[in-house]
Simulated assay, not measured.
Amino acid sequence: MLKDTGERIIPENMKILNGLLIEHIARYHFAKEYAYGRVLDFASGSGYGSHIIAKSRVNHVEAVIGIDIDPDAVKYAKATYYHPCSTFLVGDVTDQTLPDKLGQFDCIISFETIEHVKEEAKFMKNIYEMLKPGGTLILSTPFGEGRGKPSGQEFHVHQLTVQEFKELFADYPDKNFFYQKGALIQPEHPAVIEKNFPLGIAICKK
C-alpha cells in the first residue's frame, strides 16, 4: 500500500468528487494534447499521469518515462499502471547525472514539483538539458507569497508569485501561460489573473 502523504494523488484511494483529484486529472488531460515522441513525466508520483499520456496518446508517443524520488511510489506505479510504452524509475529531479543517464526527450511534463525543490536551479537545468531542441515543456505550480517566503504548506519549500513563475522560462523563445482553478484551465488574460486562479501552467518550446 502506497502511503498517502496528504498531497500524493492516489486515484484508487480517492472519491471521484475529490477536488484535488479532479484538478490533477484535468491537468494531465490538458497536457496530453501536447505530448508526443519520447515523453518524460518528471516527478511522476503514483504513475496515473504517465498512464493517461501513454494510453490516450498511443499513436503519438514512443515512450513515457516516469521518474520519482520515492521508491514506494515507483513500485506502486509499476504494479498499478503498467503499459507497454511506459517505464517508471527512481530518481531525484536535481540529480545532475540524469541527462547522461536518460538522454533527451521530445516532451517533458512536470506538475506540482518545483514548489517541493530546494535546488530549483538544478531542477530547471536538468529539464533544459534533457529537452530536445524544438521540444515542449509543460510545467505547473501553485502560486503563493514568493521565493523564500513560508507558504503554509508542510511539503512546499515556497510558492512562487506569478511573475517569478514566468521568469523561470526566460531561456525558452516560445512560451504560453495558462491558469487553473479546479478543472478549469484558461489561457493568460488580464481578467483571468484578476479572478485569482491559484495555479499556473507554462507550455514552452525550446
Rank of each mutant, 00 (worst) to 15 (best):
T97F: 08
I16F: 11
Q104P: 07
E112M: 01
D72N: 12
G45L: 01
Y76R: 02
T94F: 06
A79K: 08
F88Y: 08
V58F: 14
Y28T: 06
K15S: 15
A121L: 14
P11K: 01
R38I: 13
D68H: 00
P84I: 05
D41Q: 06
V93M: 05
A77P: 02
L102V: 03
V74F: 06
F88H: 02
E62I: 11
D95K: 04
R38D: 09
D92I: 01
A31I: 05
A77T: 03
A77S: 06
V93P: 06
Y82K: 05
S86C: 10
E62T: 15
E120K: 12
K75T: 11
K75W: 12
L98I: 01
D100V: 14
G45E: 02
S56N: 10
D72Q: 10
K55W: 09
S44G: 08
A54N: 01
S46D: 04
K78M: 14
I69K: 15
S44N: 09
E120C: 08
S86A: 11
K15M: 15
Q96L: 11
Y34F: 15
D100F: 12
I10H: 02
L40D: 03
K15G: 13
A54M: 02
H24Q: 10
K55V: 15
V64R: 00
E12F: 13
Q104A: 11
L21K: 00
C107N: 06
K15H: 15
F105G: 01
Y81D: 05
G47I: 04
T87Q: 14
L40S: 02
E62K: 09
T80G: 14
D68R: 00
I25P: 05
K15D: 13
Y48V: 05
T94P: 00
S110C: 07
E62R: 12
K78E: 12
Y48E: 06
F111Q: 10
A26R: 02
I16N: 10
Y82N: 10
H29M: 08
L102G: 01
Q96C: 13
Y48A: 08
